[in-house]
Amino acid sequence: MTIMKDAPERTIKDLEGDVHPDWCPGCGDFGVLKSLKEAIVELKIPSHEVLVVSGIGCSSNLPGFIHAYGVHSLHGRAIPVATGALLANHKLRVIAVGGDGDGYGIGIGHCLHAMRRNLNLTYIVMDNEIYGLTTGQTSPTTTEGHKTKSTPRGNVEKPIQPLALALAAGATFVARGFSANQKQLTELMAQAIAHKGFSLIDVFSPCVTFNKINTYQWFKERVYDLDAEQGYDPTDLSAALAKSLEWGERIPLGKLYQVERPVYEDTEPLFRKGPLVDHKLGLDKATFDELLGEST
């Protein structure tokens, strides 16, 4: 049993949720969950200040497996629910999580607009290139030619390039992780959560049950660490764009891009008086009379 405390959690055990994850043994999402907990511990954020918001899908079950506040919302709607919660209380650490179908399929519109809005929000996408919970249909990131239940002759649509989209949409932190590279992933998450502005981490998180193409092995043969690249500058948008489109034989992992830009919360004058949840409710007589008086 977890004991209530105000102090930051010291170990990831303190962040264990009520139930054990119901993911398939070997699922990439285990690694993502572990890294997220490690990042929260590393950043010394008390768990009650964390709100994890997900959509629907295997990976969107994650809030149930971490001892923090959580909303397991609707398919594709994690971002706007997270946005609303953040606007209500911008002192919360709001982290949105979900899968590629949730974020890049049904929820892509919200995803892009949240990026240009530059809210202080972290979005972790567990990208397995397949719809897992619905038992194996093509997803927005499914590779061309991949035979799935809904594309028995092979997928004919070009997969989405989420990192390129994020850069174009104005995200201020864009990274890619791999759930088998735990150390790097934890580090990326800690940086993303600490980043002031919208951060996206696209995580290769293999589906061991329904994706027999993009396996751990498949990724291991292709991924490389950007940190090992001589002279790579993560503040250079064109360089980041080039890396974001790299796919095939070599796929980059790591932080592609990070810049500082005013966050939405800084531009809202009403936030100067603190989070909205702490504001007084209602109108005083003078303001009310003034508002109604405009109509006489």
């Binding site: 971002i79 629910v81 609303g84 209500a88 209380n89 519109g109 607009h113 949840v277 504001h279 007084k280």
Partner: peptide
Amino acid sequence: GIVVKQAEDELAVVNMAIGAGHAGI
């Protein structure tokens, strides 16, 4: 004292309002 946010569509609009309601305003 009301923050006004125009969003990308009505899906976002209502989900934001619900997220905010959940968070306590």
